[in-house]
Nucleic acid binder design. Sequence first.
DNA 1: AGTAACTGGATCTTTTTTATCTTAAATTTT
DNA 2: AAAATTTAAGATAAAAAAGATCCAGTTACT
Lengths: 141, 141
Amino acid sequence: MKINRATDYGVRLMVYLAACEGRVVPRAEIASAMEIPPEFLAKIAQHLAKAGLLEIRQGRAGGYRLKRPSQEITLLEVVEALEGEIALNLCVGHPESCRFSPTCKVHLVWEAATEGLRDLLGNIYLANLIEKKAKSDEEVG
Amino acid sequence: MKINRATDYGVRLMVYLAACEGRVVPRAEIASAMEIPPEFLAKIAQHLAKAGLLEIRQGRAGGYRLKRPSQEITLLEVVEALEGEIALNLCVGHPESCRFSPTCKVHLVWEAATEGLRDLLGNIYLANLIEKKAKSDEEVG
DNA sequence: AGTAACTGGATCTTTTTTATCTTAAATTTT
DNA sequence: AAAATTTAAGATAAAAAAGATCCAGTTACT
């Protein structure tokens, strides 16, 4: 019951991009800053791109960039882009996988827990997750 | 981000035992009723026994039985007996595993989500999960 | 054209999960 | 005490998933 490494990396990637505000960031920079194996990062980025969460620029000054504003991308989207829809047990979302699920009270618990988790992650936006750079009027004023 | 099969089986086992109200239930019966490979079930039961959740009777009329009343055993205990303490990401419970965690806002999210999940499971008791047999005064009114 | 940067698919290694096999021990019945 | 039944505990194995890497090909800037 853990997210996998790819998801962890993917979240780091997205948060890093959010902090870069629209700049096209080369993969090597992210890999080094976030301590992610660069080749693995490439794969993760490709998934996130297919899910419409980031934009890939190929060619000489290529790299990655968020596709949408960081205020509009939730952690849930990032996680589910990489792991598929969250389901804490097989029977969640696939009741047919378990003969007992129609009458099973545990099934209901897994569903409730899954929903709770999805709700929580669905209310957190990348913008909430970046360390705010000190801005003059915030910092001094 | 799923419980594993052993945990699913373990929960079924515990709920089945809860429904059997203190009877010593042979492994074969549980395995067959709950559709769990018997040898695998044995391993799971051993774990749960070590965690003090069930009692194993060896020998001829042997089998398994809850160690404590079903009103006092939570789903959280069962899950954590089999998977270790729930932690949705490596960094939860082991902040030293990630260089970034001291300042990482995502870390806080994983912690909050983990706590949410543990709370939910910690408030559900085996007794809540068994199908009540129709009792005359409940059923007929 | 030349170079820098990413793609997409294949491959490979390691780890985890799931399951089984085997010998031994415990307990009840005869 | 012997026999029958039932589980223990450790080893092993098979399958699946996770994590990582490689490379030929493509894109785009200068």
